[in-house]
Write a protein that binds this DNA or RNA. Structure first.
Lengths: 327, 327
DNA sequence: TACTATAATGTAATCGTTTACATTATAAAC
DNA sequence: GTTTATAATGTAAACGATTACATTATAGTA
């Protein structure tokens, strides 16, 4: 491995000059610049990021905390983050926490030990207390999922409003008996989406029926199936279901199909997130599209600002209702 | 940020001793060990990985090269890699190449610049020449997709045999007219799977019909739809389709459904990979399961051996046919 | 030509570890 | 109480970059 000293020697200059050439500083005369560039080429020199990082005491890495890589919801966000990261010479470490505090801690350690410059957390189950403490010393941004009172900046959509729009859509196409398939109420987004659901019903003079609200433990496909089973077994069966995630909704679709009923004629279904698969199902799924890529780029930009030491404000982005075959 | 000197001072020992305590060496008397540990605790000392990495000239990071994070096929493999990586104190940088040489190069630079200790490549479109050159100086393992003559160790399944088994299954349940939905023939796996398809037909006395072989540009859902459209338009329509990826197969399913035909009664479909979604479709998909998690762990172990400087041999793992509703 | 102002380059400290080697403390043996 | 073997600790040099500050070269001016 050639290092900067060897290049300096070969070129007959000092290491400082080589460093200046490497970093594109304009205080080097073109004669020496050429000498140095030739030496670099002839020795095949590649500057060690390890050395540079130590000196600059930065790692140019940031962490993305997600509960599970298998959840397609995060993919577009990650792409957005990555785009900004790469353009600013950062790299991202994708950290699957499994919502497991132990694993979470492995990753938190990375930032404590300066192996990472900052964190974008998308894990709704993250230990918010630890995060808060960490945020005092390190740069942290919350993305999609957040806790207001943590004081940690976040980027998200207006979940209440999005949910309201989804349910309103169902009402407008004639549904009066609308079930809600929600996840665990301990998550903020879950509570907000339920509020939107309620508001839509109230505003249109429909009464709230607790029997029509189902909570699932996770957002996965199987949970959607199970919940749908219960819905189908109801005496007074709803004619529409609003699920707070596409995976839930797809599970629901599958269950309706299996029972011999038809979507949307017998039961309409609306999802949330617009994951890739929501257009591959049969029928395709009406869903709420979050500007996920944008959310990623914004989160990354916020984090970089934070790392630079600047204050950043939280951001709320727009969503969109995508009407497809399931309604 | 406290550093090792401050801890040494606080504990009244030398930095060497603190380092020894940190690294669990047993040449430290228990009295001093306790002193040091107290100092560490009281100062909240966390050793800087930057310093350590430079000194050890390692980054304890390795790269995973995949064409696209959106392809669920890689997820289980990644989990396997991650499991081994974490257990050995490595971290992984997930690198989406988009099969774009420029992006690829950004990541190759990371290893050239010592920001990464090795690479696990899963990109079928990787520039194999560059990879070969790189492999002379750095540690590289090919996973799932590989090139034999590169001399770079790989882990994979027997694609020819797996494909043979899938087609044989279709023949055994009575199909005689079986289409192959293949990807671009420039990929090794693609050629191997086609060979398996041919062998199964030949062995059962079925003639090879070129009109039944369709090539798609990518492995995505839409490409499966398009190919299926062509298949459905054939005069002498096949009764079964073997697709070399689940996403293709799911696209095919959707298209058959849309055309009013029934799977598997009118047309049976077999996929490849057993991605999560293959059990969520309607009907569920018969597919070839690769031991993806295992493939990941093996690849990671191989890479770590390679980084240690040991020679490693290539590995071929077993696959499995999962029969579900689509056949 | 001599004197400045400025541009170009060099010197050496620094980031925070680890570790070969040197030194000192401790215990065992006589 | 020496001597000796061994255990425990310390010293200082890496690792490979960046950069404040010092120095030297260059050009401009009178």
């Amino acid at each position: 491995m050639t290092n900067i000293q060897q290049v300096a020697k070969q070129a007959g200059v000092s290491v400082a000059t080589v460093s200046r050439v490497m970093n594109g500083q304009n205080t080097v005369s073109s004669k020496t610049r050429i000498k140095v560039e030739e030496a670099i080429k002839s020795l095949n020199y590649e500057p060690s990021i390890l050395g540079r990082n130590l000196r600059n005491s930065e790692s140019r890495i940031f962490l993305i905390l997600i509960p599970s890589i298998s959840n397609p919801f995060y993919l577009e966000i990650i792409k957005g983050i990555e785009y900004i990261a790469l353009s600013q010479n950062y790299n991202i470490l994708l950290c699957e926490t499994d919502s497991n505090p132990e694993k979470e801690n492995i990753y938190f350690d990375l930032v404590r030990k300066k192996m990472a410059d900052g964190i974008i957390s998308m894990d709704p189950a993250v230990n918010i207390e630890t995060l808060k403490v960490l945020a005092e010393k390190y740069s942290i941004i919350q993305c999609s999922e957040y806790s207001t009172d943590s004081g940690i900046p976040y980027v998200t959509i207006n979940n209440e409003e999005a949910s309201y729009r989804a349910v309103k859509h169902l009402i407008q196409i004639g549904h009066k008996k609308i079930a809600l398939m929600n996840s665990d109420g301990k998550f903020l987004y879950s509570r907000q989406r339920e509020e939107g659901y309620q508001r839509a019903l109230e505003e249109h003079g429909l009464s709230l029926n607790d029997d029509y609200i189902f909570y699932t433990k996770h957002l996965g496909f199987e949970h959607g199936q199970q919940a749908m089973k219960k819905i189908l077994a109801l005496q007074d069966r709803p004619t529409a279901v609003f699920a707070v995630s596409d995976l839930l909704a797809i599970g629901a679709l599958k269950e309706v199909n299996a029972s011999g009923l038809h979507v949307p004629n017998d039961i309409a279904v609306v999802g949330f997130d617009k994951i890739d698969f929501s257009s591959m199902t049969n029928p395709t799924l009406t869903t709420i599209a979050q500007p996920m890529y944008k959310m990623g780029t914004v989160a990354a930009e916020m984090l970089i600002e934070k790392i630079k030491g600047n204050e950043v404000d939280s951001v709320i982005l727009d969503h969109e209702l995508v009407i497809r075959e399931s309604t």
